[in-house]
Amino acid sequence: MKAQGKTEFRTGVGTLLKISLAPTIWAFHFVICYGATAVWCTKLTASGDTVPLQTWLSALTVAALAGIVACGINGWRTWRRGGYGEDGHTPGIGDTESRARFLGHATVLLSVVSFIGVIFVITPVLLIGTCA
């Protein structure tokens, strides 16, 4: 039994926050899309041409999706390590492995939702080609 000192904050919250990495990527993607559109349309283009904006944001989207997939794969591995079983009555739910499995599973699920979210958010950029 050793007190965990400073690492308590890092390991504790750090690991917990890991499950929300994918939604955080979604959030950054969202904010950048919104901010870039606002600045592009009000400050950078006079003609209302949106092709450069669409290109850059599509590239950003690909990067964001890659990041989310990476999170998902990472979570998938943690989840599968030691087999399935994420539900309440599985024996041995009180051990460290099952906690890790749970976090892995939650990471996978959140990655799926974030993935869908990112695709939704980029849709308007691709479908609406004007600054109006």
């Binding site: 939704f120 849709t123 308007p124 479908l127 609406i128 004007t130 109006a132």
Partner: peptide, 9 residues
């Protein structure tokens, strides 16, 4: 969503 966005302009 795709439908809604396409009739927006």
């Amino acid at each position: 969503l795709a439908w809604g966005l396409s009739i927006m302009p």
